[in-house]
Amino acid sequence: MYETTYHRPASIDEAAALFAKHPEAKYLAGGHTLIPVMKQRLAAPSDVIDLAKIKEMIGIEATSDALIIKAATTYYDITQSAAAKKAIPAIVYLTSVLGDPAVRYRGTIGGSIANNDPAADYPAAVLALGATIKTNTREIKGDDFFQGLFSTALEDNEIITSVSFPIPAKAGYAKMRHPASRFALTGVFVAQTKSGEVRVAATGASQNGVMRVPAIEAALKANWSAGALDGVKISADGLMSDIHGSAEYRANLIKVMAQRAVEAAG
């Protein structure tokens, strides 16, 4: 790791002010992506600004319409939250199969979403549930947030402060876990909104990161059941192909994981 200077601001404003002073800085949350990348010398921020201890960025609230998770809330705290379990159990399930226990103690929802790894789990939930990302300067619709591999609508100095998930009528998540990395070889989040809209998002599959799956949405809109997807064929065009699985394999996984997710959603 190259040399860097560590900062622990006490507030969001203080963190943003530090970034303004150090344009080559990076924000640090759980650190389970940034620190490994710094160790490989693929990132060399002059300064790291730690957001994980900022109190106004930690916590979970549920209203009758939405589950709001503040950005520096750890995966572990999400899995333990009675409010989250009651509001959107699929989010708690997704979190419980993310990484391993030591990762879940440190990783944060804001860090995962800001990083937008093409095989990360939360982007699928954000897109399928039509969540809103709140930052220190604005609100960004989930539909506009993810912009391809590791890129998002965020400005370099912008800080995600919370994510607001509308509470759906039904939601479920299923993924084929890579057995070593526990990332999604393909994961699918299915949701039916309270107004009856069906939204389905797949992660780990597309070369451009998380994506909606219109063919599955249309089939589930007509008939919300795993069986309704039996005849659906997903194209392998634009899907990832690597040593872990071909594009065709992932195309089939999208269907199978969607079926499992529908069964989980009930």
């Binding site: 560590y6 622990r8 640090l28 650190g31 389970h32 620190i35 490994p36 790291v48 730690d50 994980a52 572990y76 226990p101 030591a102 990762v103 103690y105 440190r106």
Partner: peptide, 20 residues
């Protein structure tokens, strides 16, 4: 893995400043 404030976490992925 060591315990930081009672939680089992990876010490190779923790900057010392984070746990001051």
């Amino acid at each position: 893995i060591v315990h930081i404030d009672g939680k089992a976490v990876k010490s190779c992925t923790t900057l010392v400043g984070q746990i001051d």
